[in-house]
């Protein structure tokens, strides 16, 4: 499946849901937020939101800031 993840084009096999994608990149599901095509995915729906070909995904976390 061809996706854009955090602005980078990616070809990733064997992912069907947003949760799979987090697991693929080794990102903890805790304290991250995910947007698919500009829509924020509620935490309880990360595991069952299906990815579609060409989708743009943003995976956001907390970093140091003032």
């Amino acid at each position: 499946m061809t996706l854009t993840v955090n602005g980078e084009p990616k070809v990733i096999a064997a992912v069907t849901t947003v949760g799979n994608l987090l697991d693929h990149f080794g990102v903890s599901h805790q304290t991250v937020a995910v947007m698919v095509d500009g829509v924020i995915i509620a935490r309880e729906h990360v595991g069952n939101t299906l990815l579609r070909e060409g989708a743009s995904i943003e995976i956001i976390r907390f970093v140091g800031g003032g």
């Binding site: 955090n6 990102v27 937020a33 995976i59 976390r61 970093v63 800031g65």
Partner: peptide, 19 residues
Amino acid sequence: VTVALRRVNLSRSDEPSLL
């Protein structure tokens, strides 16, 4: 304490959370 929100660095996605 304040924190910021930024994209996960996909090449370092296993780094521990600031939190």
